[in-house]
Write a protein that binds this DNA or RNA. Structure first.
Length: 812
RNA sequence: GCCGGCGUGGCGGAAUGGCAGACGCGGCAGACUCAAAAUCUGUUUAUGGUGACAUAGUAUGGGUUCAAGUCCCAUCGCCGGCACCA
């Protein structure tokens, strides 16, 4: 064995051995307890692996390796989310088929991941672009279609001017494309949509049954945006029709001073004959339609609007006549596109009322004291009590809501209504490199699904992948593929030419890992019943309202269809923080602060990179890269390496003669406990710190017993698998380290035999004393008093002893 | 604006309400070396003191408690998400 620590050599050696021995293959023995650990599979980009990737991968590799040592049958898989725009764009630019580009990128990514020594079960590798995989992506789409959850709609979509593709709402960030940052404009197009809104309640309520970190739950809830309220019909003066509005504050109905409808509201057309200032209204509609959604919200500071001359609403609870306005602060896409304005108790209405000099009527007062609704809207529901509100006057807000809802329903004026911010999922992309949507459009039969036995519908080879400005997919130009016959009537028909978004393949990939080669089904019942749900899923916060929500939707749907055995796909979800550049900024080529993982592996070794990324700081917070920090971790591993020179053939716990052993035994048990717990709770940094501290003790003692060294190797193995496996072999321990059993700690042995007790007077430490572990409260206090006798000048009014920690004497 | 999270040495960061600063980095001093690097040892919150020690100290101001970085109230600052959703 080498004298010096040479990671290049030993890392290759062990990676080869693990592969040959199939060390980390998940067993199909369904009688053993299972553990399914999952990390988000990467998009194999041309840039190769980023130093951000190893952070979550190492974290769950630690968990997976520990679980195997604890006797679980572990599934820790990896694959490729390989459909996507960058690949397609690269293919166009360099005239290479996207399939080839993908193959090359996957190869590079896989090599890079393999140099890091992850315990992935590579036999289960999957690729979303493999027809045997997307067969089942298409199959799920057909299920959705048949269940009425996939539909085609003519609607304004978010069109990225640079990618030349429609985007889902979730993919638009501040009016710009999430991917490329280019401006997003509205375009009307016929699109495939998925009715995720149908699942809004299930997606919110399901969150109560899973163990996700709080901020993930909160953002999903906010994104779905469920609110409870009422729809109320306001009669229009002199007409049969009523104006239906949505409100979450029906209790404030007596405070309505005007109404507002959205510029797109159909009544503006329907009642155009009645409207006397039609030109003005048309002009306003025109200017509103020119604004993008982004501009509309950007200009939120300044409200605009026009009063409709000729239409008047009537308040159904008190008969008061109310003017109707048009303003773009009311959105057609939420609620009914019309609101009742209560400026006294809504900030937006208040602002609008101030600008256009509308009356402000207070109908809620605060139990805490006077409020002046001419200065600001009063929106506090908790302390509110009704005034000026007819039969509601005197009630608390919550009571009043109930009372008015009952009244509205009884009188047939309104109904309870729940609304959501969530919109249906735009599922079409006008690009080549995605799963073809398995639908045929027949002039007689409409949209017809392709028979299941004809799946997968493979992507044809086309000559040009160039995106088109007219919004058609490149597939549309391939007539021989487009022209087909209707599966229903046999007549001439055309294929759908849009493809699925990148989120399709990743919405169910964790199911495929349980049975990746199945040709009859997306996975066998037995495999799904055994492996699902995923026990621990870690991924980026940026996927909270995209991938995570989409995949929960699909899974819940499959559960309702009886395909999968559980309602929620992931039992536990955690998130890692970003790794920033050395200057604390996000890593990017333009900032020149990118760190390449290959360079770190070459210079320091994979074990150092793994250790460093786990030691860098709290797992869920972002952390800046530090080359000096990397060096420190390498130094730690060097010290572990050299520790073998200090190994002595002695039994731990029996060497009290030199006074070192008992203390070390305690430290050992404390470390086993700390490391075991920290690996479970994402506190890798303190777990590693505990091991550093332990070996510092070994160095101080000048020796380490065979048993202690063995335990240390097991504890460190999940973090630094290669060096520990090598040391294990050279020290001659039995079998392979990866087959070893995770050590247990003895709680009794984690307690120090000699207690260091702080003695405080009035909370300030005045002395430190040593006492035997089994000291009584009385003796501890007496010893404490003795230690600070010269300072005890007053009367002691209280004596506190905190077991094993301190004595506090309170004197006057 | 709303919702989350955070604020601790020169730096990354530790602390079930119980001795703040574990562990690492960097610095300083020493050992080894002709020398340097690497390695090892010691030291490292600030102020005062040769020293034991004393005093102050976890963004700011209050409060609860025998005891507060930790709990409560208010303020300031930073980061992330959502943003006219009635």
């Amino acid at each position: 064995m080498e004298r010096v620590y040479n990671p290049k050599e030993i890392e290759k050696k062990w990676q080869k051995i693990w592969e040959e021995e199939k060390a980390f293959a998940a067993s199909q023995d369904f009688t053993r307890p299972k553990y399914y650990a999952l990390v988000e599979f990467p998009y194999p980009s041309g840039q190769g692996l980023h130093v951000g990737h190893p952070r979550p991968y190492t974290a769950l590799d630690i968990v997976a390796r520990k679980r195997r040592m604890e006797g679980y049958n572990v599934l820790y898989p990896m694959g490729w989310d390989a459909f996507g725009l960058p690949t397609e764009n690269y293919a166009i630019k360099n005239h290479i088929h996207p399939r080839i580009v993908t193959q090359n990128n996957v190869k590079r990514f896989k090599e890079q991941l393999q140099t890091l020594g992850y315990s992935f079960d590579w036999d289960r590798e999957i690729n979303t672009t493999d027809p045997n995989y997307y067969h089942w992506t298409q199959w799920i789409f057909l299920k959705l279609f048949k269940a009425g959850l996939a539909y085609k709609a003519e609607m304004p979509i978010n069109w990225c001017t640079s990618c030349k593709v429609g985007l889902a709402n979730e993919e638009v960030v501040n009016g710009r494309c999430e991917r490329c940052g280019a401006e997003v404009v509205r375009r009307v197009k016929s699109q495939w949509m998925l009715r995720i809104t149908e699942y809004a309640d299930k997606l919110i309520d399901g969150l109560d049954t899973v163990d996700y970190i709080e901020r993930v739950k909160v953002s999903q809830k906010n994104w779905i945006g469920r609110s409870h309220g009422a729809e109320v019909d306001f009669p229009i003066k002199g007409k049969q029709e009523t104006l239906r509005i949505y409100t979450t504050r029906p209790d404030t109905l007596f405070g309505v001073t005007y109404m507002v409808i959205s510029p797109e509201h159909p009544y503006l057309t329907k009642f155009s004959d009645e409207i006397r200032n039609l030109d003005e209204i048309r002009a306003y509609q025109e200017s509103a339609s020119k604004k993008s959604d982004f501009e509309r919200s950007e200009l939120a500071k300044e409200k605009t609007g026009v009063k409709i001359d000729g239409l008047t609403a009537v308040n159904p609870v008190n008969g008061q006549e109310i003017p109707i306005w048009v303003s773009d602060y009311v959105l057609m896409s939420y609620g009914t596109g019309a609101i009742m304005a209560v400026p006294a108790h809504d900030e937006r209405d208040w602002e609008f009322a101030k600008k256009f000099h509308m009356p402000i009527i207070q109908v809620v007062e605060s139990a805490k004291g006077a409020v002046d609704v001419n200065q600001a809207a009063f929106t506090d529901v908790a302390t509110g009590r009704m005034v000026n509100s007819g039969f509601l006057t005197g009630m608390e807000v919550e009571k009043a809501k109930e009372a008015i809802l009952n009244y509205l329903e009884k009188e047939g004026i309104g109904t309870k209504k729940t609304n959501y911010k969530l919109r249906d999922w735009v599922f079409s992309r006008q690009r080549y490199w995605g799963e073809p949507i398995p639908i045929v459009k027949c002039p007689k039969c409409g949209y017809v699904p392709i028979p299941e036995d004809q799946l997968p519908l493979e992507l044809p080879d086309v000559e040009s992948y160039m995106p088109t400005d007219n919004g058609e997919s490149p597939l549309a130009a391939m007539r021989s593929w487009v022209e087909t016959t209707c599966p229903c009537c046999g007549g001439k028909a055309e294929r759908e030419t849009d493809t699925m978004p990148q989120w399709a393949g990743s919405s169910w990939y964790f199911i495929r890992y349980t049975d990746p080669d199945n040709r009859q089904a997306l996975a066998s019942k037995e495999a799904m019943e055994y492996w699902l749900p995923v026990d621990w899923y870690n991924g980026g916060m940026e996927h909270t309202t995209l991938h995570l929500l989409y995949s929960r939707f699909w899974h819940r749907f499959l559960y309702d269809q009886g395909v999968v055995p559980c309602a929620e796909p992931y039992r536990k979800r955690t998130s890692h923080g970003m790794i920033l550049g050395e200057n604390g900024e996000k890593m990017s080529k333009s900032r020149g602060n990118v760190v390449n993982p290959d360079d770190i592996v070459n210079e320091f070794g994979a074990d150092t990179l793994r250790t460093y990324e786990m030691f860098i700081g709290a797992f869920d917070l972002s952390a800046a890269w530090s080359q000096e920090g990397v060096r420190g971790c390498r130094r730690f591993l060097e010290r572990v390496w050299k520790l073998r020179d200090l190994v002595v053939d002695e039994t731990p716990g029996e060497l009290t003669a030199d006074g070192y052993s008992r203390a070390l035994e305690t430290k050992m048990h404390q470390t086993i406990k700390k490391v075991s717990n920290d690996y479970e709770s994402l506190k890798y940094n303190t777990g590693i710190a505990a091991m550093m501290s332990l070996i510092n003790e070994f160095y101080k003692a000048g020796k380490v017993t065979r048993e202690e060294f063995r335990t240390l190797l097991i504890l460190l193995n999940p973090v630094a698998p290669h060096i520990t496996e090598e040391l294990w072999e050279s020290a001659g321990y039995e079998g392979r380290l990866y087959q070893a059993k995770w050590p247990a700690w003895d709680e009794a042995k984690t307690v120090e035999s000699v207690l260091e007790i702080a003695v405080q007077i009035n909370g300030k430490v005045r002395a430190t004393i040593q006492l035997p572990a089994d000291v009584s409260k009385e003796d501890a206090i007496a010893a404490g008093k003795a230690a600070v006798a010269d300072r005890l000048t007053g009367t002691i009014v209280k004596e506190i002893y905190v077991l094993g920690r301190l004595v506090n004497l309170v004197q006057k």
